[in-house]
Design a protein around this nucleic acid. Structure first.
Lengths: 255, 255
DNA sequence: CATTTTATGTGAAAAATATAACTATAAAAA
DNA sequence: TTTTTATAGTTATATTTTTCACATAAAATG
């Protein structure tokens, strides 16, 4: 019954719509009017950063702030409280990456930051680009916190010519200059902040120009080759999870 | 030697600076000039959403998009590929929350979405507010993807009077109206998108007005009572983790 | 109508992660 | 100098999460 007859016209129609997502479709007819559409997608890769490493990044952020305030040293339990991690965990993490402290004097902030720098970026550049100068793209481009972390946005891109400005501090180029800029600044990671519909297209272009890592703010899962790293930041999810926690608390009280 | 003599003046000075973070300080003198500053912080709580639940949220986002495209049903492995999760995991997650499929026909998108709605928000409102109309605050306020997820931003706030606009679609009020609005719309969750320095202050106000959940975009860990849920979204971390993955790949190749 | 195919559903094993308990040690105090 | 104490460092244990393997059921096939 199902999957025997294909409505080719409808299928083509839908495939066109879905092409931008690289979906493959399988369309089935139940009766005259009800279509059953099943979709099959290509492989997707994530950014599988180990939890302990993720936390090192978190510690580092805290430490940089503390250093700016003149703090010279921390204890495992203070850094833990600061980052919402247990003291044991902090020590465990440090132990995993051979970060040493002083038996009774805690850890020196500067040493920690240096050690973490060693773990992370072994001196490589941190040049990135932002594609899409809408809401989120623009706010990221102007986000001043990246400076402290030495994240360097070298350029941004948008298809809309009215948004393009090659003379501003962080220039906004048209998409045609993507390859050139990536090459010139040896950019390896890019932020996608374009609308859902354009995200896959932009992603394909970026990959084509040799980008190896993508931070994706569009609420679509991108289809990329196995060796490309994608980190999806889904703001709706972040908010909904809090709303869920809050509602759940009340639910529990009722029982 | 250390921790015997306290330089009270310096301590007071620093305590004032650090007050906004609710840090407690312990200052030690090594010799005439070198201060050793150790800091001790108050307790911090996170948003500890179970991984499987986090994924349900992820599936839900995908499914809503697919539904909008007319997709009627999915298989565990297709939904898995779509969200970057293994098929077994998808089924396991569904099994954990008693979500049933059809032994050979996959899962119906609509049913899945309904089931997930049941798990999550049991009909409660999803009203939230945004504090801070800088870069990120404004882009969140204008972020159109929240509509699909029924997240409803009822108002935003800023101390800067020039940003205040009570007539626009999503009004921008001054901080003095915070309590009133929270009460009127029975808001339970709020987004903090103010600068680092103001974040703790704003947080304390929100908590004072009965807010139970916070999505914090400021790169500080907020000090809150135990029962308040905080979800920290650190954009620098998200980007750095990708840069790290990319650089690591090259490092590995060298060995 | 028996057989094959292709999914789901789930229990057990494995891996990853977190917590707790303990030991060693350097600084401070006596 | 000796004792005490606070904190790093490490090992053991517990918990969570993921993967694997297979039973089971519906649909398709011939």
């Amino acid at each position: 019954m199902c999957c025997k007859t294909y409505n080719e016209k409808r299928k083509q129609q839908l495939n066109r719509v879905l092409e931008i997502y690289s979906y493959q479709l399988k369309i089935c007819i139940f009766d005259k009017n009800i279509y059953r559409i099943i979709f099959i997608v290509k492989k997707n890769t994530k950014c599988p950063l180990k939890k302990s490493l993720r936390r090192i990044l978190l510690y580092r952020g805290s430490l940089l702030r503390l250093q700016a305030l003149g703090v010279k040293s921390v204890y495992s339990y203070t850094l833990g409280k600061e980052t919402g991690v247990s003291a044991e965990q902090v020590r465990k993490d440090f132990s995993e990456y051979q970060i040493k402290g002083n038996q009774r004097g805690g850890y020196y902030v500067e040493e920690l930051i240096n050690e973490m720098g060693r773990i992370f970026f072994q001196g490589g550049n941190k040049n990135i680009i932002v594609v899409g100068r809408g809401n989120i793209g623009s706010s990221l481009t102007n986000y001043d916190k990246f400076v402290q972390r030495q994240i360097n946005i070298v350029a941004s891109f948008d298809i809309d010519p009215s948004k393009q400005r090659s003379r501003s501090e962080i220039p906004v180029y048209g998409m045609e200059r993507l390859g050139e800029i990536i090459k010139r600044f040896t950019v390896r990671a890019a932020i996608i902040a374009v609308p859902e519909m354009a995200a896959q297209l932009v992603c394909d272009q970026l990959v084509g120009f040799g980008i190896e890592g993508i931070i994706n703010f569009a609420p679509v899962i991108l289809k990329v080759p196995d060796d490309i790293i994608v980190n999806n930041v889904n703001l709706s999810d972040e908010i909904e999870s809090v709303i869920y926690c809050v509602t759940r608390e009340t639910e529990n009280e009722r029982h």
